[in-house]
Write a protein that binds this DNA or RNA. Sequence first.
DNA 1: ATCTTGACCTAAT
DNA 2: CATTAGGCCAAGA
Length: 113
Amino acid sequence: MSQFFNQVYGVVKKIPFGKVTSYGAIARYLGHPQAARMVGYAMNASHDQLDVPAHRVVNRNGLLSGKHHFPGTRLMQQLLESEGIPVKNDQIIDFKACFWDPNTALPPFEIEI
DNA sequence: ATCTTGACCTAAT
DNA sequence: CATTAGGCCAAGA
């Protein structure tokens, strides 16, 4: 059942408060370095999964590429700013400072021991 | 059933 | 530098 999606959700759920990561980083962490697009698609389907903080996932430039998929027009930005992440022009200002890379922050991905 | 599109990324030109 | 091309695979038309 789209195990990949669940793995994505699992990683996203582990993003610490006040941190963000990128689609590609997640894809790479899961062993699919070129499936970044699927990560985005997984987010699109993440409306079912309530514990998935999709607002903490942005593209590799720190741009809020998915903000239009949130209800309202400012929600994603507000959520990030409420976590202490300044955003301007749909872009995270100090992106590298807030960036959280699962590849280095988490132990190597294991298929559900 | 096929064709198109999409919250992307990397590498090659 | 900028631009293009390829890859990923799931839904909607």
